[in-house]
Nucleic acid binder design. Sequence first.
DNA 1: ACCTGAACACCGTTCAAGT
DNA 2: ACCTGAACACCGTTCAAGT
Lengths: 235, 235
Amino acid sequence: MRMASGTQRGERRADALSKRRIVEAAIAILDAEGERALTFRALAARLATGSGAIYWHVANKDELLAAATDDVIARVMTDAGDGTGPREAVRAIALGMFDAIDVHPWVGAQLSRAPWLTAMPRIFEGIGSRLQALGVPEEAWFDSTSALVNYVLGVAGQNAANARLHGPGTDRAAFLGAIAEQWERLDAARYPFVRRLAGRLADHDDREQFLAGIDLILTGIEAALPDRARQGGHV
Amino acid sequence: MRMASGTQRGERRADALSKRRIVEAAIAILDAEGERALTFRALAARLATGSGAIYWHVANKDELLAAATDDVIARVMTDAGDGTGPREAVRAIALGMFDAIDVHPWVGAQLSRAPWLTAMPRIFEGIGSRLQALGVPEEAWFDSTSALVNYVLGVAGQNAANARLHGPGTDRAAFLGAIAEQWERLDAARYPFVRRLAGRLADHDDREQFLAGIDLILTGIEAALPDRARQGGHV
DNA sequence: ACCTGAACACCGTTCAAGT
DNA sequence: ACCTGAACACCGTTCAAGT
């Protein structure tokens, strides 16, 4: 007796294993239970199969994580980035990444593991093409894009790290408050600056601060723009 | 018969276990053989003891990695950062971190795992206090420092990731060349910008590009400076 | 107080055997 | 071609037993 019910030649059962389904299941586990919960055993259980079956579709865990990350980043790049002007587009792309990593913190960690061949070209293209539209001269493309991308990746990594510390579902405010409290208790002679900063830690808005950083870099980029391009991008 | 040779009351044998010695051994393994090589078994073998002995001095692997990272960062902060003016000091601190991560790539990965209570205050203090000296007004301290720190962490994470891809001791140039080649082969319709960038990937100088990003952010920070502070820091 | 090393629980990955 | 699931090698961590 065949397992398939209503399948025809060349078709696949709706629940047949595939890289797409595996990646989707992986994302679901990562989102709901965090990075530590993603094991081949858990994945196999969720997909009602053996752990070895997954290896038929995916080479190893690194490839699985890269594919999951690429999935999320691809969505960001198609969804965001069509603001009015090029400056708005850069901000929109950056914010899109921030928000995506807010929902999928593990993406932030994964991006620090060099998906140079999958997610990274998407990010470079998304941001760099907008800088080009902003009128940044070709000699400055690489450095400018790299500055924005690295900043975004830095924030992404920290958000991922924070999410790892307070497991999925814990509230951020209490977490930040606890750190602020520690910072206030640091040695006054060695950490005068950090102690004065501590008060702002607890009540600052991550998203606003992220955007403030983007704006600082954009201001730096625009300061080096040829006069012609300063009035909001070229035609 | 006692193991000790020439030890007196209250003294420790030169080769007695201690957190310091454990952390030093861990750093040696991480530097020489990479992150994957650091296991409690390898560490115990190197220290000629049982793996359980390490747990008497160190709570777990996370604490060990945090301590190793803190060690490296602490050295950067005491060694670097005394340039002529505050702007030079910021650049010196940033470059110090870049160079440290170049030598110890695993630090870059570890910083993306939130050592909020050890390395992070050092970094914030090192950079933030110089921005203060630069004349940045208090309302802007947090955002400005955070922008620079996140950028540095982003670069750090990428350098760590690259080092992980080409194991310790492989040459960077060939590695970048391989990626540039892949980027040139991307779909022309979807990645026009990245394809044009690919040529620059292979021959660019990481360190110079890093500094260019720092300068962009510093320019953005200085653009918002009150007039009084623009001429090179306050008195 | 500090060290030893076997044991435990768990993981990524492989592979002979199935369909 | 694709799936099953036991087995392998390895890891972080624990802990009873030693000194």
